[in-house]
């Protein structure tokens, strides 16, 4: 069973999301290293994302590609990264998601990934 853990957090808050050049960046990364070490066996994938200022939203309408600067929706907390967790039950996924450092300051949305090959 696979679950996506989508990490939402206020990217404008530099205490929660420090700049790579700042002193607070190291400890934050260390938190993610520790998380990876603890749960690595059950993580199928995982990536951070650049801030929403780097986002380009794409829509195709009547065969025409429309691109817009910025994220799909303006929200208080933005998608800042994700993991794909591979485990047996939602309880396990919740326990792992709760260890993601940003769960303490933002929100981690856990969504099952459907398995269309399974009967």
């Amino acid at each position: 069973m696979k679950y996506a853990a989508l990490i939402y957090s206020d990217e404008t808050n530099h205490e929660i999301n420090p700049d790579p050049s700042s002193e607070a960046f190291g400890p934050m990364m260390a938190g993610y290293m520790a998380f990876g070490e603890k749960h690595g066996a059950k993580l199928a994938a995982g990536e951070p994302l650049t801030p929403t200022a780097m986002a380009t939203s794409v829509q195709v309408r009547n065969g025409e590609t429309l691109t817009t600067d910025g994220p799909f929706a303006e929200t208080k907390e933005q998608l800042g990264g994700f993991y794909i967790i591979d485990c047996d039950t939602l309880d396990e996924a919740i326990a792992i998601a709760a260890d993601i450092p940003h769960a303490a300051t933002g929100t981690v949305e856990v969504r099952p990934v459907p398995d269309f090959h399974k009967g």
């Binding site: 679950y3 039950t89 939602l90 309880d91 326990a95 856990v110 099952p112």
Partner: peptide, 14 residues
């Protein structure tokens, strides 16, 4: 069913 909410006893921790 789809999110595999466990049909067994919760872990002692929770």
């Amino acid at each position: 069913k789809q999110s595999a909410i466990p049909l067994h006893m919760p872990d002692d921790a929770v």
